[in-house]
Design a protein around this nucleic acid. Structure first.
Length: 503
RNA sequence: CGCGGGGUAGAGAAAUUGGCAUCUCGCAAGGCUCAUAACCUUGAGGUUGGCGGUUCGAGUCCGCCCCCCGCAACCA
C-alpha cells in the first residue's frame, strides 16, 4: 500500500500582502511535501486563506465593497503568489468562505456542542471609543489604549458562546505524554506548551454577536451569533479533505469526492496530519485545536512543526520601523540584476532552507543574502555545473548511465526529522567534495596524458553531479531539473548557466 | 522568585552519553587553469557572558550572578 502524507500550512489572513514569514512556512512545507512525493508517497499538501473576521469586514466597509468581493480579490492575489515561490502545482487551496468549509465548521461546532463543551456566558470587553475597537489587556499600556492614552476604556458586556478548554487540560497533557517526543517539533516547543497547559486553562469565547460582526459563519441554531474567526479557521485542516463527507447532502464545488479524511488525516490509532506554523501559533495549533479535535471526537494531529521568525537587520519586522521585507521584492531585485525568475525563486528557497536554522529565528539583510547567494549558488553550485559539464563536453561524453537515484540515508533522516538546513548542508557538502575531487585528481590534465583514466574521472564527476541534482529536487525544483536535463544530453551549447554572480 | 529560549574568533552558527573547540562568510599568503575573477591548500583570529564547585578531564554537569529575546491567553 502506498504511504500517504499530509501537510498543511496555516492560512494567512487576507487583509494584507502575504508576509515573508508565510513564504518561509509554505516553502518549508513544500520542501517536505516534494520530498515525500519523490519517495513515491501519496501527498496531500494544503494551504489557503482565512477570510472571516472583523478586520476584513471593516476594510471591506471602508472600501465600499461587499466583504465577499473584497476577500475574493485578496484570495486570488494570494493564490497567484503561490507559484511565484516555486510551490508544487498540485497544492490544495482552501478558502474559509468555501461552501464546504462553512458546512464543515458548523458540523464541527455541533459535535462539540453535543459533547457538552459549548456554553453561553456574559463576556466583558474593554472598548476604546477613540479606535472604535475592542481591546484586549495585552493591547493596553498602563490600562489605557496606547493610541488614545487619555480616554477611559468603556466596559461592554455581551453574551457569547464559550468553549470548555479547561476540561481538556488533563487530556492534553496525556496527549503530549503519549503522542511521542516529536508531537511538537522542536522539543523545546513541546516543553513550552506542556508548561503552558500545566499552568491551567481558561475557557475561551468562540462567537461574536452577528449584529456587530456579521462577517462570519453562523452558529448552528442561533442566527444572532457568528463563529469567532479562528475557531472556524482551524477547521480548514480537515474541511480541505472533504470532512465530514457523510454529512454533506449535496456535493459542494471544490469538496473532495472520495473519503480523503481517513486516508490523510489518519485515525486515532495512527494519526497522520502534519501542521506547520510559526511560533506565535503554538497554542492555537498544539493546544486549542487539539482540544477542539478531542471535543469533536476526531483524531488528533500527528505532528506540529513550529518554525521561527525572520528578523530584519537584527530587529523584529514592523511597519513603523519600516524594515519589513517582502519576499517578492527579493525576487524582483534579483530579476533586475539579470537572474532569471525561476532562478530567483530558487535562490529565495535556498536562503530559507540553508541560511535559516529550521526551527530558530533568522535574520535577513540584503547584504548577507547576496553574500550567501554568491558563495553557495554562484561559486558553489552554478560554477560546479559549468566546470563539470564543460569537461564532459570537451571529452565528448554526451551521456552516461547513472548509478544512484535514491535519496541518501543521512539526507533522508534529516528531512524525515524536518531538519531542512541539515539536509541542505548535506548537499553542499557534496558540492564541496566534488570541487575538492577536481583539485586533487585534475581530470582536465589527466584527459590529456591518459584519456581513458581521464574519462573515468569525468564520469565519476558526472555521477557526483547527478547525486547533487537528485537531492536538490525538493529544495530547488527548477535548478535541479535543469541540471538533470543537461546531464541527459551533454553538449557545449546546452550547459546551463545557473545563478550568475551578483555584484 | 510567572513561563520559555539564548550568550562560543570581526559576523553567523556546530559540537552524541563530559574527551584534541569545529564549520561557513569575511581577511592574508600560496597553488591551479576545466569553470561563473570561479576552485583547491595553508595561515591569522578564542579566557566558549562572569564567579565558584564536581571531575584525571567541563562549551557540555551543579550553584550563584550579569546581559539579551520571545510569551503572559479571547492580538485570527
Amino acid at each position: 500500500m502506498t504511504k500517504s502524507f499530509y501537510i498543511t500550512t496555516t492560512l494567512p489572513y487576507v487583509n494584507a500582502k502575504p508576509h515573508i514569514g508565510f513564504a518561509l512556512e509554505i516553502v518549508f512545507a513544500d520542501i517536505i511535501a516534494r520530498y515525500h512525493k519523490l519517495k513515491g508517497e501519496e501527498v496531500f499538501f494544503n494551504t489557503g486563506t482565512d477570510e472571516h473576521g472583523l478586520k476584513i469586514y471593516q476594510k471591506a466597509v471602508e472600501g465600499g465593497v461587499e466583504p465577499q468581493a473584497y476577500v475574493d480579490e485578496y484570495a486570488s492575489k494570494v493564490k497567484a503568489l503561490v507559484p511565484r515561490l516555486g510551490i508544487s502545482e498540485d497544492i490544495h487551496f482552501i478558502r474559509t468562505t468555501d461552501g464546504h468549509h462553512k458546512a464543515a465548521a458548523q458540523e464541527f461546532w455541533k459535535r462539540c456542542a453535543d459533547n457538552g463543551d459549548i456554553y453561553k456566558k456574559i463576556y466583558k470587553v474593554k472598548y476604546c471609543v477613540g479606535c472604535e475597537l475592542e481591546k484586549t489587556d495585552s493591547d493596553l499600556v498602563d490600562g489605557y489604549c496606547p493610541l488614545h492614552p487619555g480616554k477611559e476604556l468603556e466596559l461592554i458586556e455581551e453574551e457569547n458562546y464559550f468553549f470548555k478548554f479547561s476540561k481538556y487540560q488533563q487530556p492534553l497533557l496525556d496527549l503530549y505524554d503519549t503522542a511521542g517526543h516529536d508531537f511538537v517539533v522542536p522539543k523545546t516547543r513541546l516543553h513550552e506548551i506542556r508548561e503552558f497547559v500545566s499552568a491551567g486553562l481558561k475557557d475561551f469565547s468562540i462567537s461574536r454577536l452577528a449584529s456587530k460582526m456579521p462577517w462570519g459563519i453562523s452558529v448552528p441554531d442561533d442566527e444572532t451569533q457568528v463563529m469567532y474567526v479562528w475557531f472556524d479557521a482551524l477547521i480548514n485542516y480537515i474541511s480541505t479533505l472533504g470532512w465530514p463527507l457523510h454529512q454533506s447532502e449535496t456535493p459542494v464545488q471544490g469538496a473532495a469526492s472520495e473519503d480523503l479524511f481517513e486516508k490523510f488525516w489518519g485515525t486515532r490509532e495512527v494519526p497522520n496530519g502534519v501542521q506547520i506554523a510559526g511560533k506565535d501559533n503554538l497554542r492555537q495549533q498544539s493546544a486549542m485545536w487539539q482540544a477542539m479535535l478531542m471535543s469533536a471526537g476526531l483524531p488528533n494531529s500527528r505532528q506540529i512543526l513550529i518554525h521561527g521568525f525572520i528578523n530584519s537587520g537584527g530587529q523584529k519586522m514592523s511597519k513603523s520601523i519600516g524594515n519589513v521585507v517582502d519576499p517578492f521584492d527579493i525576487i524582483d531585485k534579483l530579476v533586475q540584476q539579470g537572474v532569471a525568475e525561476e532562478q530567483a525563486i530558487d535562490a529565495l528557497r535556498y536562503w530559507f532552507a540553508r541560511e535559516m536554522q529550521t526551527f530558530e529565528d533568522g535574520d535577513f539583510t540584503w547584504e548577507s543574502f547576496v553574500e550567501s547567494y554568491n558563495a553557495n549558488l554562484a561559486n558553489g553550485l552554478g560554477n560546479l555545473v559549468s566546470r563539470v559539464l564543460k569537461m564532459a563536453a570537451n571529452a565528448e561524453i554526451s551521456n552516461y548511465q547513472f548509478l544512484i537515484s535514491n535519496f541518501d540515508q543521512e539526507f533522508s533522516r534529516h528531512l524525515e526529522n524536518y531538519e531542512i538546513q541539515k539536509a541542505a548542508d548535506w548537499v553542499w557538502g557534496k558540492i564541496k567534495a566534488a570541487d575538492e575531487y577536481i583539485a586533487k585528481e585534475e581530470p582536465f590534465k589527466t584527459i590529456k596524458s591518459n584519456p581513458e583514466q581521464g574519462k573515468l574521472q569525468i564520469q565519476d564527476l558526472l555521477e557526483q553531479l547527478h547525486v547533487i541534482a537528485h537531492h536538490l529536487q525538493p529544495l530547488l525544483p527548477d535548478s535541479s531539473q535543469k541540471i538533470l536535463a543537461a546531464l541527459e544530453n551533454i553538449t557545449l551549447e546546452s550547459i546551463p548557466r545557473l545563478f550568475p554572480r551578483l555584484d
